[in-house]
Amino acid sequence: MANNKTLRLDKLVSQVTDLSRAEVKRAARQGRISVNGEVISDPAQKVLESDTVTLDGDALHEPGPRYFMLNKPLGYVCATKDGEHPTVLDLIDEPNKQKLHIAGRLDIDTTGLVLITDDGQWSHRITSPRHHCEKTYYALLAEGIDDSAIEKFAKGIWLNNEKKRTKPAKLEILYRNEVRITISEGRYHQVKRMFAALDNRVLELHRERVGDIVLDEDLPEGEYRALTSEEIAGMGAQES
């Protein structure tokens, strides 16, 4: 444990595990919790965060900061809770996952790279407009698109009910109706609205990259992994 703050034993253990307060109390009464080597059966006992607390012989540590990439499937929303749809956090199996949040959301019908963390400052560097963090998407369009769209995206697109153009975006035409697009802002449904402004429609949208982090091609849909130290540090360099 890190600081010297005083907490009830059951509250402290609950904060760093997935156990409820009731489950912690039961574990204490069963003699499964020790503080500085001494078995403590009273869940209300005051302990310091600097104390060594063990559960079933394993030392407990405050989790974090944690950084994950998830390959988001269709049908999941980027929210911590939702009454109608499953959330991306339902795909995460980590202790204290309620402390995690999504750094840059995707629509329910968009797939691909989602970054999940409990580091607020790191997340801010991704989501804050002033840091201009680039995101790259693959899009399947309803209609074919020609090279003239490349210049239009580079100049910025007028979106419906917007007072200014989008920031310059890079459009790469992969095939007649398949493109890769890189944007540096995050307006509401931005990619879909950009193509709608050209009288086209996005049928499929898949995020491939956020900043310097590229979706791991070996990561199956619906799975996640911890980011490498290089990936974490690379996002720190996004500041302008």
Rank of each mutant, 00 (worst) to 15 (best):
V24D: 07
L140H: 14
L113Q: 09
K155V: 02
Q238L: 15
L106A: 11
R225F: 06
D18T: 10
E143H: 15
V77C: 06
V210K: 02
Q15M: 13
N200Y: 05
R209A: 11
L174P: 06
T182D: 08
D212H: 03
E204K: 15
K97H: 10
V114C: 06
S148F: 00
F68D: 00
L205P: 02
E178D: 12
D218M: 09
L74W: 08
K46Q: 13
D51W: 04
L7V: 00
R207T: 10
G64N: 03
D56R: 11
L89S: 09
A27H: 10
E217T: 12
L74F: 13
E38Y: 01
I183P: 00
T117L: 05
F68V: 05
I108P: 03
P73R: 06
D93Y: 01
L12C: 02
I126H: 01
E38W: 00
R193A: 07
T17M: 12
G83R: 14
G211R: 06
L141A: 11
H131G: 04
C78N: 07
S123E: 09
E217R: 13
Y188Q: 03
H101L: 11
D82K: 10
A169K: 08
S14H: 10
I40Y: 00
A196P: 02
E221G: 12
E230A: 13
I183K: 03
N4K: 14
T136G: 05
K99A: 10
N161E: 15
E151V: 09
F153T: 01
N36V: 01
G120L: 03
D18C: 00
E230R: 07
E134Y: 04
L70F: 07
Y137C: 09
Y76A: 04
N71R: 03
T6D: 04
A28S: 14
D218E: 13
L115H: 03
A154K: 12
V13K: 06
T17E: 11
A79D: 11
D119H: 01
D56S: 14
G83N: 15
T80E: 08
Q30K: 15
E217H: 10
N161D: 15
E172M: 12
K164D: 11
